[in-house]
Design a protein around this nucleic acid. Structure first.
Lengths: 255, 255
DNA sequence: ACCTGAACACCGTTCAAGT
DNA sequence: ACCTGAACACCGTTCAAGT
């Protein structure tokens, strides 16, 4: 029978025979904690605690137990403020978003520059909260800032000379490119460093060991292959898309 | 006290007072199952069962319990064949990969077409096993086919006229673009349909309701906004990158 | 790198009870 | 949309025991 409500496994009397359990002196650890005053908890407080935990212990350490510990409250008290863990995570993402780009981007008068600024903003946000990137990319919560960003993009593409139909398509492309590439980069960042190093080694050594006549290009490029999260890649792809937009807009104008 | 080793909750005597439990007639359900003969289990068999479960119940239904149920074996017998669940999932991804692109792509003589074919192959694989897409995109297991694909790409870019340094950069860009955009598209596909419909509605209605003078482009584009997983987007972005490569290669040649 | 059963640590969630 | 404690269903994992 597992015991519940105990601090996250640090000082439990495991069945190893030692029998000695140092009293959990770390933080508010269950029973001998005074009852929290009414209304002393709220969403903002809980989300702040969650961020501390996520940055210290990673996303997998972010459990309701740990949250209760961090707050000096019972794990289940969170259910008074969020319906379940999924809703909790979504609201957390929203809060993070507000903190990252609270103020909208000011149009510069140069449409390419506007898109670049927006892309940089979003990418920085994903890399900053890399642990949550995968969730962020897909689960869009429709906040005002999203509409502002969409308007900025559509306006930029209009100024580039695209038709409304084309603008809608390239807006989708830009949005997906920015989100998916940033999310990917963030996910790579989150991999354990040793694993990433090992992966690269295997790739380079594996490529070097190939038959030169079967893999001529790869063998000679083996040592110069780039890591998955090379930071230059994002902008190079973005410029390619911007070039395509510019060319398309120019062709529209010359007709 | 939870009872273990029981079929996944379908016929358990819950404490609801009814007391009536229909005998678990579904499949091999624990106690009254004859012991599996020695060596009757193996990796391939387990992975096949896992695929059945994942396609039927989704990724979150793929537990060791369910796996044992499907195999008519005890849940923990899987530990004899895989170190832990992570190793099991990785090997599963490898197997899927082998099934999807067992045979390499034959170069067509047209470098753009080669890259297109490769991209289409990989994207189709991600969409087919959409549940696993997020894991697949980042955790590369270095199988021979990866080297073959790299050689194909590097050769294509060489023929496009890029220098070796440039080829390495654009190889990385293409690889990341294909993986991250496909993974994104697959992730959207996996969202519950109602949720996706609701998201789109909120977006369209939200955009329509905005102030026309503050969001002129967005208001008029509101009803024509594209869904996140519009299938045309992938190729449009890919062509933009290919155009950039072609232009860069041409400029190298003219020097 | 055999298969099973019992047990354990942990995690999300519910519900009756305390303030 | 108050806070706590006990309980529950489930999930990955370990370990001693059976063949």
């Amino acid at each position: 029978m597992a015991e519940y409500g105990i601090g996250s496994g640090d000082t439990e009397a495991i069945t190893d025979g030692t029998g000695a359990t140092q009293a959990a002196g770390t933080s508010a650890s269950k029973s001998n904690r005074p009852r929290k005053p009414r209304d002393s908890l709220n969403k903002a407080l809980i989300i702040d605690a969650a961020l501390v935990i996520a940055e210290r212990d990673g996303l997998e350490g972010l459990t309701f137990q740990a949250l209760g510990n961090e707050l000096g409250a019972h794990a289940t008290s969170i259910y008074r403020h969020f319906r379940d863990k999924d809703e909790f995570l979504l609201e957390m993402l929203d809060t993070l978003r507000d903190r990252s780009y609270g103020d909208a981007i000011e149009p510069t008068g140069n449409w390419r520059e506007d898109v670049r600024l927006l892309a940089g903003h979003i990418r920085a946000h994903y890399l900053r909260y890399a642990q949550f990137a995968q969730q962020m990319s897909v689960r869009s919560t429709h906040r005002p800032i999203e509409f502002t960003n969409l308007e900025l993009t559509l306006a930029a593409l209009d100024r580039a000379g695209l038709t409304p139909d084309e603008a809608v398509i390239y807006t989708r492309l830009l949005g997906n490119y920015i989100r998916s590439m940033s999310s990917f980069e963030a996910a790579v960042t989150c991999l354990e460093p040793e694993l990433r190093a090992k992966d690269r080694m295997q790739m380079q050594f594996g490529a070097q060991a190939l038959a030169l006549d079967e893999f001529p290009h790869l063998v000679s490029a083996a040592t110069s292959l780039l890591p998955l999260d090379d930071p230059r890649i994002f902008d190079i792809g973005l410029e390619a898309i911007l070039d395509a937009i510019e060319a398309l807009g120019a062709s529209r104008r010359s007709n």
